[in-house]
Computed example of a mutant assay.
Amino acid sequence: MSERRILIDVPTQTLTLSAGTRVLARYPVSTGRNGVGERNGSGCTPRGLHRVRARIGEGCAPGTVFRGRRPTGEICDAALRAAHPGRDWITTRILWLTGCEPGRNRGGEVDTLRRYIYIHGTPSSEPLGEPRSHGCIRMHDAALIALFDQTPVGTPVEIRG
C-alpha cells in the first residue's frame, strides 16, 4: 500500500487523507483565525511540509478533554461547554505536528512542534469550514477518530495556504 499523506488546504478549510493517488477521506476543518503564518505567538496555522510527531489519546472516550496533551478526566458536553464558554477545547485525540523545513516551520521562532500545533478534536457544536482556531487544525471528534486510526507516526502532512 502507498504511504498515507495528509493535505490541509487552508483556503477551502479541508483535510484530505490519501494513499498514493487515491483519496481515502476528505473532512471539513477549522484552521487559524489569524490566517497562515509560522511565527511563534502569531495564532496562525503554519504552512509547508510537516510530519505527525506523536499520536495522543488512543483509546480515550470521544469528547475526552485534554490540557497540556493530558486527559483532564472531563468529557466535553453541553453542560461543561456552558460552564466554560471561552475555553479552547482540545478533545478526543491529538496528532502533534513537527515541521520538516528548517527556517520555515522548523527551528527558532517558526518551530511547529514548539508552537504545539496539532490536528485535534473539537465539539460538534463548533463550526468547521471557517478559520476559528488559535493555529491548530480542528476536526469534529468522530472524523478525528477515523483519521487517527489511519495515521501512524511519521505520516507526512502538507499545509497549503
Score class of each variant (00 low, 15 high):
132 R>V: 15
106 R>N: 04
145 I>W: 01
158 E>P: 02
126 E>Y: 11
120 H>C: 05
23 V>S: 08
138 R>M: 07
70 R>Q: 15
147 L>D: 06
51 R>C: 08
133 S>K: 00
91 T>F: 09
106 R>E: 13
151 T>P: 14
46 P>A: 11
90 I>W: 09
60 C>Q: 14
69 R>V: 00
69 R>Q: 13
26 R>C: 10
9 D>F: 13
79 A>W: 04
148 F>C: 13
92 T>A: 02
94 I>S: 07
27 Y>W: 11
146 A>F: 02
29 V>L: 07
92 T>N: 07
14 T>L: 01
92 T>R: 03
64 T>K: 12
139 M>P: 00
5 R>H: 03
32 G>E: 01
97 L>M: 14
73 G>W: 09
15 L>D: 02
38 E>P: 03
71 P>C: 01
146 A>Y: 02
109 E>G: 11
53 R>F: 15
2 S>T: 04
39 R>V: 03
80 L>K: 03
138 R>C: 07
23 V>R: 11
8 I>W: 05
143 A>C: 12
41 G>R: 02
57 G>W: 05
4 R>P: 01
88 D>G: 03
59 G>R: 06
7 L>E: 04
134 H>R: 13
63 G>I: 02
137 I>G: 04
33 R>V: 12
44 C>S: 07
90 I>C: 10
84 H>Y: 07
48 G>S: 13
144 L>H: 03
67 R>C: 00
38 E>Q: 14
15 L>I: 00
86 G>E: 08
20 G>W: 09
27 Y>N: 04
19 A>N: 08
66 F>Q: 10
161 G>N: 06
59 G>V: 12
156 P>C: 10
83 A>M: 12
41 G>E: 06
35 G>S: 01
124 S>N: 11
43 G>E: 05
135 G>L: 09
56 I>H: 11
24 L>S: 05
133 S>G: 05
108 G>P: 14
19 A>C: 08
2 S>H: 08
139 M>W: 00
24 L>A: 09
154 G>D: 09
55 R>H: 03
30 S>K: 07
110 V>C: 14
